[in-house]
């Protein structure tokens, strides 16, 4: 039924989808910050790398599985995000893009180099005991770690969707994203909501980074690459669309996997950038974004 060629293709696509879910989760955090606070978090990927190292240390030192470590790491990241927004970033909300950019690039430089000082420039593999286990489903051979990480990412996304849909704080944040002045007029504490949103954004990236360590080695230099990746995904998916971030994450995951397989792994992000340019030109509001009025 399955020719060998076809099953190779299928394997590549499935692997892309599973990785793409992690990308989607990371981008979700950026999308929330970008969409609500209207702040460009140029340190996003660097936070992901910090989370990777945190999960790495927790695993090496205490044997804590990253799938579990994800929870405390996300919690800590939430607090950090909340405090950061309150103390540092808030006075930059509404300022020109390039001023925000410098603040967050400064932060990114500090983060990634602090990691560099502590852990050195070399790649650190987590070496999970089940790293080389896999499931066989028909012609598919799927890495166990990828399945676990993808399921965990989906779970986090589900929690987020629930939060934004069913809690009063979540609804208030969505109101802020839709109409800032309106939200302030009806008495919402915009400053607190911004801090919560930034916290949530970082919690997402904290969870995503923890999971990422199960499928990729932790390296400081991943920081800027992940920042770019997250931005690419958010814009392709559509600003302010959570589903869009996930869909675009999958798209990029699959496109990277296919490009890596068909052409060369080192050229995989070229296709992401080509995709980004195409979306910017043909559908600037993103795949699932709302058309501007």
């Amino acid at each position: 039924m399955f020719t060998p060629m076809l099953s190779i293709w299928l394997n590549v696509v499935v692997q892309g989808v599973l990785t793409g879910l992690l990308y989607g989760l990371m981008a979700l955090g950026l999308s929330a910050i970008f969409g609500v606070v209207r702040l460009v978090n140029f340190a996003h990927g660097e936070f992901a790398v910090v989370a990777m190292y945190a999960a790495f240390v927790l695993f090496r030192a205490f044997g804590l599985d990253p799938l579990i470590a994800m929870v405390p790491i996300a919690a800590v990241f939430f607090v950090v995000g909340f405090a950061l927004q309150r103390m540092l970033i808030n006075s930059f909300v509404g300022r020109p893009d390039h001023e925000q950019f410098i603040l967050l690039v400064g932060l990114a430089i500090v983060l990634v180099n602090a990691v560099l000082i502590v852990f050195g420039p070399d790649a650190q593999p987590a070496n999970l005991p089940y790293a080389f286990d896999s499931y066989e489903v028909g012609p598919l051979i799927i890495d166990k770690v990828r399945v676990f990480a993808a399921v965990a990412a989906l779970a986090v996304c589900a929690v987020l969707f629930g939060f934004f849909r069913f809690t009063s704080t979540g609804t208030a944040i969505r109101a802020c994203a839709d109409n800032l002045i309106g939200a302030a007029v009806v008495g919402l504490d915009v400053r607190r909501l911004y801090a919560v949103t930034f916290g949530i954004g970082l919690a997402c990236v904290g969870a995503a980074g923890s999971l990422m360590v199960t499928i990729a080695d932790a390296v400081p230099s991943l920081g800027p690459a992940y920042t770019l990746l997250a931005f690419t995904i958010v814009i392709i998916g559509g600003l302010g669309s959570m589903a869009g971030a996930l869909v675009a994450g999958l798209l990029i995951g699959v496109s990277e996997a296919l490009a890596g397989f068909l052409i060369a792994p080192s050229m995989k992000s070229m296709f992401s950038f080509a995709l980004l340019v195409a979306v910017l030109v043909l559908r600037p509001q993103g795949l699932l974004g709302k058309k501007p009025a």
Partner: peptide, 11 residues
């Protein structure tokens, strides 16, 4: 340590 300079620079 590589990166020490960059941390100060970022700050």
């Amino acid at each position: 340590a590589p990166g020490a300079k960059a941390v100060f620079f970022g700050l």
